[in-house]
C-alpha cells in the first residue's frame, strides 16, 4: 500500500507533521487502524532500528523518528482501543526508588513504544511496591527497572523478591539496566534479563516475552 509505505518513509525522515497528515489521510480512506500501525508506523520504526544498529544513523535521528511515530499514534490510539487491537506486550518501566536519573529509562521507553509495546512509565524514584502493584493491576508481562547509582541498585532485588512474595496470577519477567548495572549483577539478583542500552533492551524484551525465561511469581 503506497500510502503506508510513504508514512514509513516520512517516519524514517523524522517528519512528524507529515506522518500525522498521512496517518489522518489513511484513517479517512478507511484503512484498518492495525494495518496503518503495522505497515506504516511500526514498519518505519523497524527500519530506523535496523539503520541504528548498523550505525548508519544515530540516536538523535531515532528520537526524531520516535516523535513522528508518536504523532501518528496520537491519531490511531482511539481506534486501536475501540478495535481492541493487542500490542506486542505490556511493560511497566521506571527508575528505582531513591534515584531520579531518567534519561536512559526514557530512551528505553521510547524505543519499546516504537517497537509496538504498551508502556506504563512510572517515572523516577519508584518504590518497589508500586512497580509490582502496577504490573499486577495492568497485567503487564515485564517490569523494566533503571538505576544510575550503586546505592540504588539493591532496590531492583527488592522488586524481584516482592514479585516472588506477591505470586501474581500471571508471570512477570524483569529486565534491569543502567550505567552501574552489569549482566553479573542481573544474574545475582535473579533478574530475567539485562539491557546494556535502549536498542538492546527492545530485543531482549521481545525475546523474554516470546521465548519465555525463568519466571518470577505466578
Amino acid at each position: 500500500m503506497e500510502l503506508l509505505h510513504t508514512i514509513a518513509q516520512q517516519l524514517e525522515q523524522g517528519d512528524d507533521e507529515q506522518v500525522a497528515a498521512l496517518t489522518r489521510q489513511a484513517i479517512e480512506e478507511g484503512l484498518p487502524a492495525k494495518q496503518i500501525l503495522d505497515d506504516g508506523l511500526i514498519a518505519g520504526m523497524a527500519i530506523v532500528g535496523n539503520l541504528f544498529k548498523k550505525h548508519q544513523i544515530f540516536l538523535p535521528e531515532v528520537l526524531l523518528a520516535a516523535k513522528a511515530m508518536c504523532a501518528g499514534m496520537e491519531l490511531l490510539k482511539p481506534l486501536l482501543i475501540r478495535d481492541a487491537i493487542p500490542t506486542l506486550g505490556k511493560v511497566v518501566i521506571g527508575t528505582v526508588q531513591g534515584d531520579i536519573h531518567d534519561i536512559g529509562k526514557n530512551l528505553v521507553a521510547i524505543m519499546l513504544k516504537g517497537a509496538g509495546f504498551d508502556i506504563i512509565d512510572l517515572g523516577k524514584d519508584v518504590p518497589p511496591q508500586r512497580f509490582v502493584d502496577t504490573a499486577v493491576r495492568e497485567q503487564a508481562q515485564v517490569i523494566a527497572m533503571s538505576a544510575l547509582l550503586t546505592t540504588t541498585m539493591p532496590v531492583m532485588k527488592q522488586v524481584i523478591d516482592l514479585i516472588q512474595i506477591t505470586q501474581p496470577p500471571k508471570p512477570i519477567r524483569t529486565i534491569v539496566g543502567g550505567a552501574p548495572v552489569s549482566p553479573e549483577f542481573a544474574r545475582e539478583i535473579g533478574a530475567d534479563a539485562y539491557g546494556y542500552d535502549a536498542a538492546h533492551a527492545v530485543d531482549v524484551v521481545k525475546s523474554i516475552i516470546a521465548k519465555g525465561s525463568p519466571l518470577r511469581g505466578g
Binding site: 540516536l59 528520537l63 526524531l64 516523535k67 534519561i103 526514557n106 521510547i110
Partner: peptide, 18 residues
C-alpha cells in the same frame, strides 16, 4: 525544561539539551 521536552514528545531536543 528537559523533562518538559520529553513529556511533549520532543525527545531529540530533550536528549540534546541533557
Amino acid at each position: 525544561a528537559i523533562t518538559d521536552l520529553f513529556n511533549s514528545n520532543d525527545f531529540a531536543l530533550g536528549y540534546m539539551l541533557d
